[in-house]
Amino acid sequence: MVTQAFAQEAATPAVTHDAPVDATHADPTAGTHATTEADGGAHASDVFPPFDPSTFPSQLLWLAITFGVLYVLMSKIALPRIGGILDDRKARIDADLAAADASRQKTDAAIAAYEAALAAAKAKAQGIANESRDAIQADIAAKRTAVETDLSAKVAEAEARIGKTKAEALTHVDEIATETAQTVVSQLVGDVSADSVRAAVAKVSKE
């Protein structure tokens, strides 16, 4: 039995080429049924197994069942789930990127505000500095003018006094000369009337 089956199977490739024709013409199980039983219920007929039409109904039935189940499981459970995971991840990444972008814009705005404030403060400080410098300068100028006016007034006054004193002193020169001359003359000559001395001094000082 073993050798018979082996011989049969070994001969199988030889009939492969016209197997489909054979399969349609001949009753697939006719004549080989005894060996089929011996093979444990297999469809081992004398045709090449892939071209044995007696196996087709079962294969088609189970292909339809299993592939149908696969299609339903894939389209209803697995693929939506994986697609959901991928979408979630994409949404999350996008959201994170958007948040990062928003934060960056916020930072930029803060930096800009800081710089604006800084510039304003600088400008203000400069304004205050200018103002106070101007004020101080004005103050100094005013004080200097006041002092200068005061000084020039004092100078003028002093000059006037000096002039007056000088003039006064000059008026006293004649008298001093008269007294000196009277004293000198009285020592040398004797008494001389003050009036004649005065007239002589006046006559000399005129020359």
């Binding site: 199977e9 070994a10 490739p13 892939p50 079962s58």
Partner: peptide
């Protein structure tokens, strides 16, 4: 060693 046996369909 039969190369065809692997394709046999058994109930």
């Amino acid at each position: 060693t039969d190369p065809i046996h692997q394709f046999v369909i058994e109930d």
